[in-house]
Design a protein around this nucleic acid. Structure first.
Length: 335
DNA sequence: CGCCTTTGACCCGCGC
DNA sequence: GCGCGGGTCAAAGGCG
């Protein structure tokens, strides 16, 4: 699937957006979201010229929002809605003719928000495959819901025993990938994760680790892999939405974080006090505030689009998750 | 003892 | 149909 009819893997740039993906101005960073059938690319300008809703103008707010709920469209919408003109979601809907559907971020996000930010049922209505997964909480997600209890009796051999009933294709939840410059693979983001697998990545000396949120009923997963071309880059892919409060916040870490982080940066105190996550953000924050002090040990990657793909030092993983996700995007756009 | 990581095996989708 | 690779399971062991 990731087989690249794409381009030269060594010159591949997942952050390169051909024209029809959407025009963006530097500087910016982007979030990639992929549910394997719907892939969305979020672009966000670092400078929000206008903040109509009085929301936090900081680009980090977007990031924190993403981390908080991983793929909380509602949060994203608010975060990115700093400037409606500059935020957009490109959703190539592979199921519907395959042509990229480009829309304002308010569209999918608003749909989600109508149902509540964390409601697993927040179906994105029509084309919400991801919502379908979460919502009919039944056992379409056999592994998420406490695998031990759900795989009851007989058919726990779901592993080996092929169920007679045709299994519908399990739609994947939307995903977001973050690139982080860090020496440690598993970055602390405030949530508790349990590692449930590790796989070698093809053509990469670095394995990919699979984590699941340890909170009950929470289906969020994340995958962590390291770019083999730039080992200092950690690619973290979140999948799903947290349906609970960030444990770090509950433990009062948020208060500490809020104490450290200047409110002037985060115009919305509530955003900090209740949801701001995590030590992960701190280095980025420090780097932002004082770039000279920040070394590269743990910093969020931003991709100024001023750099042409060929100019960028960082070469994303050829066979990583981003590659997969981006492949679908690029392939969509190529006739 | 509870929680976590490790790791080999298994499942499944996809391309050939 | 087969092989490959990604994703997941679950037993075993480690650690605090």
């Amino acid at each position: 699937m990731s087989d690249d009819k794409n381009n030269d893997p060594f010159n591949y740039n997942p952050f390169y957006t051909p024209d029809n993906i959407g025009v963006v101005n530097p500087p910016e960073f982007r979030f990639f979201d992929d549910d394997s059938t719907n892939l969305s690319m979020f672009t966000h300008h670092q400078q929000a010229p206008h903040n109509p809703q009085g929301l936090n103008p900081s680009p980090f707010m977007s990031f924190t929002g993403c981390l908080r709920s991983s793929v909380d469209y509602n949060t994203l919408s608010r975060a990115f809605d700093l400037s409606c003109s500059s935020s957009e979601v490109i959703t190539p809907n592979l199921d519907e003719g395959g042509s990229s559907k480009k829309c304002s971020i308010t569209e999918p996000a608003a749909t989600a928000s109508e149902n509540g930010p964390l409601s697993p049922n927040s179906s994105v209505s029509s084309s919400s495959k991801e919502a379908a997964v979460e919502e009919d909480g039944d056992n379409s997600k056999k592994d998420e819901d406490d695998p031990k209890t759900t795989c009851n009796d007989d058919d726990d051999k779901s592993k080996k025993g092929n169920k007679p009933k045709k299994k519908e294709k399990r739609p994947r939840e939307p995903r977001f990938a973050f690139l982080t410059k860090s020496e440690i693979d598993h970055l602390e983001d405030g949530y508790r994760w349990r590692k449930y697998g590790q796989k070698a990545v093809k053509n990469s000396p670095y394995p990919r680790s699979y984590y699941r949120c340890t909170t009950q009923k929470c289906t969020v997963k994340k995958r962590v892999e390291r770019s083999f071309q730039d080992p200092s880059i950690v690619i973290t892919t979140y999948e799903g939405q947290h349906n609970h409060e960030c444990p770090a916040n509950l433990r009062g870490n948020a208060a500490a974080a809020a104490a450290i982080l200047s409110p002037s940066f985060f115009a919305s105190p509530s955003a900090i006090g209740t949801t701001f996550p995590h030590s992960l953000l701190l280095p980025q924050f420090l780097q932002m505030r004082n770039p000279s002090r920040a070394n590269s040990s743990n910093s969020m990657m931003f991709y100024p689009q001023t750099l042409a793909p060929q100019q960028q030092q960082f070469q994303p993983p050829d066979h990583g998750l981003l590659h997969d996700m981006l492949n679908s995007v690029v392939q969509k756009k190529e006739p």
